[in-house]
């Protein structure tokens, strides 16, 4: 049988020849199977919901109950999950689900108003009856079984932790929660959790207890406890470093941070067109607007999926960080032109 379209094996052996024949047959069968293959149909998993109620347990925190706009129950979720909320303005924001996973008639989110934050300002202005669209839920902070848990929450970081606490409590697994914040009035949800088991909840406001160190947060923990931490990034980093080797440390995995202090530049694609990259967007985003099929994955420079050949110009992440793709290549997701323009070859 002809093995058209392929080169001969570098080391001809009976097995190599057999494999060449088998793959040739497979390619022919694939083409035949294609005659009766139904192409993939569109799948829309977005969830239309309606704001049922909005309350404010703290002056700057809004808790929203979202109910399905149709009759179907909401998808199941587990503690640590989040949803992408499409706001009426079109802004997309991720919020952790902080209600009861067993309640499929409503999702609950809690949102702190961030000064200058367009998304949180819009959430705070929502009223009952407003229609929204959700995507997900997804879990970037899954809760797995452990002999015991230490939950550490900083401020609004209590949102994914709250359902974890309830799940651990319901399963009869020993747990402890430390919730930190500026002052008690800015620390939502943990008062309700304290009602479950007052002795297990330590609400630790900075104004009276001082700003805690990672060692303070971890003091008195069981050896086998799985540490689950959510809060401001410096808190997560400090705890990550302080948890002893061999002990479980869990934190939410976030999307890449927004681009700050970027400069606009132009990416010239071999074969055209030229693409303008704004200061606050990546070359990848700009290129995908004209070439939607450009592969990418981690969007942090390391996985290599979007690394392409750099034909002209030089790139860097910023003045202190070289382009992770190395010489002659650029990571579209994080590389930025050192000058005004670069030329890249998207071909493989």
């Amino acid at each position: 049988m002809s093995t058209a379209g392929t080169a001969p094996p570098p080391h001809p052996t009976p097995a190599a020849n057999a494999l060449a024949t088998i793959t040739t047959v497979a390619a022919r069968l694939a083409v035949r199977s294609g005659h009766r293959r139904r192409p993939a149909g569109p799948v829309d998993r977005s969830l239309p919901v309606e704001v049922r109620a909005l309350r404010r347990p703290c002056p700057d925190v809004a808790v929203l109950d979202l109910v399905p706009a149709g009759s179907a129950p909401l998808p199941r979720w587990r503690p640590g999950a989040h949803v992408d909320v499409e706001l009426p303005s079109g802004l997309l924001r991720q919020y952790s689900l902080c209600g009861d996973p067993a309640d499929r008639s409503a999702y609950r989110i809690a949102v702190r108003a961030v000064p200058g934050g367009a998304g949180s300002a819009e959430v705070h202005a929502l009223t009952a009856g407003t229609r929204l669209r959700l995507h997900g839920p997804r879990n970037a902070f899954p809760l797995a079984t452990a002999p015991s848990y230490l939950f550490l929450a900083g401020g609004i970081g209590i949102t994914p932790i709250a359902p974890m606490v309830r799940a651990a409590h319901a399963a009869g697994i020993p747990w402890r929660l430390v919730h930190t914040g500026r002052d008690l009035a800015s620390m939502p949800l943990s008062d309700e959790l304290a009602a479950l088991a007052p002795g297990r909840v330590h609400r630790r406001p900075d104004d009276t207890a001082g700003v805690p160190t990672a060692a303070d947060l971890l003091s008195g923990m069981d050896d086998g406890a799985a540490v689950h931490c959510c809060g401001p990034p410096p808190m997560i980093e400090a705890v990550r470093r302080a948890v002893p080797a061999g002990q479980r440390f869990h934190a939410e995995r976030f999307s890449p941070p927004p681009i700050r202090e970027g400069r606009p530049f132009t990416v010239r694609i071999v074969g055209g067109p030229d693409v303008a990259v704004p200061a606050d967007r990546s070359a990848l985003d700009a290129v995908r607007a004209v070439r939607p099929d450009v592969p990418y994955s981690c969007r942090q420079g390391f996985c290599g999926t979007c690394h392409v050949r750099l034909v002209a110009g030089t790139t860097q992440v910023d003045t202190a960080t070289p382009d992770p793709a190395g010489p002659g290549r650029t990571a579209l997701c994080v590389g930025r032109a050192a000058g005004d323009e670069v030329e890249v070859d998207l071909g493989r």
Partner: peptide, 9 residues
């Protein structure tokens, strides 16, 4: 508390 299909990681 076992993560299952309804937990989309």
């Amino acid at each position: 508390m076992t993560a299952t299909d309804d937990d989309r990681i």
